[in-house]
Design a protein around this nucleic acid. Structure first.
Lengths: 338, 338
DNA sequence: TTGAAAGCGCTAACAG
DNA sequence: CTGTTAGCGCTTTCAA
């Protein structure tokens, strides 16, 4: 019960292997009847060309790899959707790798992808070291970074302007009259630090006093943020502060739950702003004002670029370093004071 | 600047190709020093074996395909996470395909996966016809269905008992004293009809009157459900009914927003129950009572089964048809009446 | 422990 | 339009 080969089909059809090959690859220069006959035999016998033998020379897999932190995080799942959809229109498939925020796993996946001979790799997590990325350059492997930068001169990346986003959030609150603003720090991607830096700069520029006590410790997830906010309220600091900035929407979600559970109300007692604009932001207990990140675009643009580079390796000489703009999305979680 | 081949390495190392091959594949019967020498040369020259040439005989890709409806839907992203994680522990990669609820795309993906020679396929959407699945059997392609059934005698599938889940939801409301219950019908997977059937049966068994006017038209998504519920309220039917069943959590989310936007309150004016227990259910404006589906388990168990079948094709003779149990998750969206 | 030879299934290149 | 020949890069087989 051996699998059929092109040789078997050629014998059955009484033509050469080449003719069958031409039919398979839909090349011209095959007489119509010959083609039809071969096709019918292929169908009848359920012959399927050996993908590996086909590609032994070209090394083309028509597959790309995507490394993300967690497919269940709406940020990544939206980005992944953009990747998968664009890839599909070019008849590419996507191997999705979940680092689970674990650098060891991130690099294991990177190596798996390289071994599998994918045509290109999209890296959307920091769980792949800069060394590993340098190595990609040395080995001339096509890749694009999304949501993170590289120090490599000739690396391509797509990031958002997190500093600007951080300013937008801070300025918005200040414009609403807030002066005592607490920053719930996220352990996010690189962007996290930029958002914090923007907060500090904006406060300074507006001559509003702040110090380290205005900034939380690093919060990993919504649960973390929940407990931190509970503490914040129990220490009666909520009477002192009028607004909270969440380093990302998950942090803000945790904070929101804590605030409400403690019997306070948003935005009456406390204003709250997030970052990312996950789709859930608008269905929370209080529709969350937040900073939009172009998640779908991240996926689409980086994939388009990757596919271009695969098609034309010359493009590697002209790396694109794209910085997308964030956007303030005003909902109901912040109020004007005084 | 041609890529290095095993032949190049063998020349550099002054050994035969076979020795290099043995080293690559970590076989024994290679002298320690020889092995180390070859390994160092491989590293130095950055040689990577041609994946396609390696597998031309075995046809083993160590890759599986997963076809889902929409990676952005938390139901599927949790399932996908289970798949990806289990696959990883067996050093398998996962090609994730998004049918976007489009049967044409679903079948296109199926064909792409077959062409790529993946070792197995997981189908978690109805956007792949039964014919296409029959064909999989004929061609002896390893696959497992998740979240959907097949008519095939020897097909493997993992589904949940949606009829039971439907009963759980209905009985819970009835136990709380509700008699006028409106069913918001989802256009979901096959399960949708089972949930509705269970609703009808439960009503009948409890001698509670109902007719078709107790059942909405088919609702595709949260927006759909939102408008339907707005209409429902504007027709003042909300005064007549005391509870709503959402065919899934998205439907319930749309309904919840509509109810609140119309100035009514949950569960005071109207009780609401969902289905799926997406992670967002607990952070909605009112924490949603719902029926839990074992999403992660779906992904994990089906992948484990698929990998077993790949390892041991004999198992195809003993198809597993597994039905997982749903679970009632009580939160704050339903109240006792009378 | 190592190597030579003979393919794996397919396609490029060159006839005809 | 069709076929022959000679590999692609690697592994299996057998021999040393």
């Amino acid at each position: 019960m051996q699998r059929l080969t092109i040789r078997d089909i050629s014998k059955i059809a009484n033509v050469s292997m080449m003719t069958v090959s031409r039919v398979i690859n839909n090349e011209k220069h095959v007489k119509k009847e010959t083609k039809e006959n071969v096709l019918s035999i292929i169908k009848q016998y359920g012959y399927e060309p050996n993908y590996f033998a086909q590609n032994i020379k070209t090394r083309k897999s028509n597959t790309i790899g995507l490394i993300i932190g967690d497919i269940e995080n709406p940020f990544y799942s939206r980005l992944a959707k953009g990747v998968i959809n664009v890839a599909e229109t070019s008849n590419y498939n996507v191997i999705v790798c979940n680092s689970n925020y674990n650098p060891k796993l991130g690099e294991k996946y990177l190596n798996m992808l390289i071994k599998k001979g994918v045509d290109g790799i999209l890296i959307a997590t920091i769980d792949v070291s800069n060394d590993a990325i340098n190595n990609l350059n040395k080995r001339n492997i096509t890749y694009v970074l999304v949501t993170r930068k590289s120090e490599e001169e000739n690396g391509n990346y797509f990031i958002a302007d997190d500093y600007l986003g951080g300013r937008m959030a801070s300025e918005y609150l200040i414009k609403l009259g807030h002066k005592k603003i607490f920053f719930l720090r996220s352990a996010d991607v690189l962007g996290a630090n930029e958002r914090l830096r923007a907060f500090k700069d904006t406060m300074k520029e507006n001559n509003i006093f702040f110090d380290d006590s205005y900034i939380s410790k690093i919060l990993t997830n919504a649960e973390d943020a929940y407990s931190a906010t509970i503490e914040f309220i129990e220490e009666t600091r909520s009477k002192e502060f009028t607004a909270l900035i969440g380093g990302n929407d998950f942090i803000a979600m945790g904070a929101m739950d804590a605030i409400i559970d403690k019997g306070l109300s948003i935005p009456k007692d406390l204003s709250l702003i997030g970052y990312d604009n996950l789709w859930v932001a608008k269905i929370l207990k209080v529709a969350l004002t937040t900073i939009r990140q172009p998640k779908m675009q991240f996926g689409q643009m980086s994939t388009e670029r990757l596919l271009e580079m695969i098609k034309n390796p010359e493009l590697k000489k002209y790396p694109q370093k794209i910085i997308l703009k964030p956007e303030l999305v005003i909902r109901n979680s912040c109020k004007k004071i005084n």
